Simulated assay, not measured.
Amino acid sequence: MIFMESLMNIKYVFWDSDNTLVNTALHHWNKHFNILQNDYDIVLDEIYKTRVYENNGGQNWEWMSHEIGLNEDKQVYLDKIDHWYSANATEIQLRPGIDFALRNFRDRGIPQAVVSNGRRRSVMAALKAKKLDEYFEFILCKEDYDGRKPDPTPYLTALKKMETIKKTSIDSKNCLVIEDDPLGVHAGNAAGMLTLHRKLHENQSTSSHADFVAYEEEEFKAILTREFLHP
């Protein structure tokens, strides 16, 4: 059980990026679909959509090379999908309620940061296209730490970086993690932080490691207002 006293002490917020701040699942799919079809004459079957979303670019290159006949140097392929992703990044949309959350945390002086499993080029392309990068003390991506969520290392690395920036010791219990992916929620929980699972789909399985769960915009905003954004 979580007590209100602990909730009122939230002093730092760590966000996932893809599909938590910005709706990027379809955009990631489209970059692979278009490059594979236009450059390699490979039609990517929709049965792979979830797999594409759950992997980063390098992981997708690896299984595509072994399973669907992609014959290309890894870095060349990554450069191509990154170029497509960046060139079309203005099409990416914020998740509903994100403007409200970012502004309110900022206005209350609560430092925020991004902790992503994604590669820096794609993460930054989306955040800069939507002008979100200005809200954050820093943005950590897969290049910045060892391990991958649900390993807590990404969030523990973020905690240490925030301590360095703010020149103070930070109790993980005073940190809130907001994630769309149950693996990310697990990582935040394992790092000793409070977790809010902002589900990507209404029928998505709820993480057993989540302290709070929301899907709809109004539900998300209500939890933030009631539990964290006290007057």
Score class of each variant (00 low, 15 high):
Ile81Glu: 00
Ile81Pro: 01
Asp82Phe: 15
Trp84Arg: 10
Tyr85Lys: 05
Ser86Asp: 14
Ala87Asp: 12
Ala87Ile: 12
Ala87Arg: 10
Ala89Arg: 08
Ala89Met: 09
Thr90Gly: 12
Arg95Asn: 07
Pro96Tyr: 07
Gly97Gln: 03
Asp99Leu: 13
Phe100Trp: 10
Leu102Arg: 02
Phe105Ser: 01
Asp107Ile: 02
Arg108Tyr: 07
Gly109Met: 07
Pro111Gln: 07
Ala113Phe: 00
Ala113Pro: 04
Ala113Glu: 02
Ala113Ile: 04
Val114Thr: 04
Ser116Glu: 09
Arg120Lys: 12
Arg120Tyr: 10
Arg121Thr: 11
Arg121Asn: 13
Ser122Gly: 11
Ala125Thr: 08
Leu127Gly: 05
Lys130Gly: 08
Lys131Ile: 15
Leu132Phe: 03
Asp133Arg: 06
Tyr135Ala: 00
Glu137Gly: 06
Ile139Arg: 06
Cys141Phe: 07
Glu143Ala: 07
Asp144Leu: 05
Gly147Met: 07
Arg148Gly: 11
Lys149Glu: 09
Lys149Gln: 07
Pro150Met: 05
Pro150Cys: 06
Asp151Val: 09
Pro154Gly: 01
Tyr155Phe: 07
Tyr155Met: 05
Thr157Phe: 00
Leu159Asn: 01
Leu159Tyr: 00
Lys161Asp: 05
Met162Asp: 03
Met162Gly: 01
Glu163Lys: 06
Lys167Leu: 14
Ile170Asp: 05
Ile170Ala: 07
Asp171Ala: 10
Cys175Ser: 02
Val177Leu: 04
Ile178Ala: 00
Glu179Thr: 03
Glu179Met: 04
Asp180Ala: 02
Asp180Trp: 01
Asp181His: 12
His186Met: 15
His186Gly: 13
Ala187Phe: 03
Ala187Ile: 04
Gly188Asn: 03
Asn189Gly: 13
Leu196Val: 02
